[in-house]
Amino acid sequence: NLRWTSEAKTKLKNIPFFARSQAKARIEQLARQAEQDIVTPELVEQARLEFG
């Protein structure tokens, strides 16, 4: 299971509600691909840039 830093959680809250669950799934996918067990603000930002 993935842990989220408080900064990453804050960044996730800045994503519009309607896109948040999809973004969260993508962020967690990116973390797993990078073999990380902690979601960082950088991963959230990477996903945000993908979504535009």
Rank of each mutant, 00 (worst) to 15 (best):
Q46R: 13
V39N: 00
N14L: 15
S21M: 11
Q33S: 09
S6Y: 11
E50D: 06
K11R: 12
F51G: 04
R3Q: 11
L12Q: 00
T10Y: 10
A8E: 00
L30Y: 08
T10H: 13
I27Q: 00
Q29G: 07
I38S: 06
A23H: 08
T40I: 03
F51H: 05
L30H: 03
E35S: 13
R48T: 10
F17M: 11
N1V: 13
V39A: 01
Q46K: 12
S21N: 10
Q33G: 06
V44L: 03
K9W: 14
E45K: 05
K13A: 11
N14Q: 15
F18T: 06
L43N: 04
R26E: 04
K11L: 14
F17A: 12
P41R: 07
Q33C: 08
V44M: 06
L12A: 02
I38M: 08
S6L: 11
L43I: 09
I38D: 04
S6A: 12
W4M: 00
Q29W: 10
F51D: 04
Q22P: 04
T40R: 04
T5K: 03
N1F: 12
R20L: 06
E45S: 05
Q36R: 11
A19D: 09
Q22N: 09
A23I: 15
Q29Y: 11
W4V: 00
Q36I: 14
T10R: 15
R3F: 15
L49K: 13
D37G: 08
Q22M: 12
R3I: 14
A8N: 01
T10Q: 15
V39Y: 00
F51M: 14
Q22T: 12
S6G: 07
I38P: 08
S6M: 08
P16W: 05
E50C: 08
E28H: 03
T40M: 04
S6K: 14
R20V: 04
Q29I: 08
V44I: 07
R26H: 12
R20C: 04
T40H: 03
F17I: 06
A19I: 15
A47I: 11
Q29A: 12
Q22H: 09
T10G: 08
Q36G: 04
L30V: 04
K13L: 11
Q29V: 08
Q46H: 07
E50V: 07
A34R: 14
E42M: 07
L30K: 04
F18G: 09
A34K: 13
E28V: 05
E35L: 13
K9A: 10
R3L: 13
K24S: 04
R32N: 06
L49D: 06
D37W: 15
L43G: 01
L30T: 02
V39T: 00
E42H: 05
Q22G: 08
R26W: 14
E7R: 08
I15G: 02
E28W: 02
L12F: 14
K9C: 09
R48F: 15
S6N: 13
F51A: 07
F51T: 05
Q33N: 10
R48L: 09
L12Y: 07
W4E: 01
R26Y: 15
A31I: 02
N14H: 09
R20D: 02
E42I: 06
T40S: 05
E42K: 05
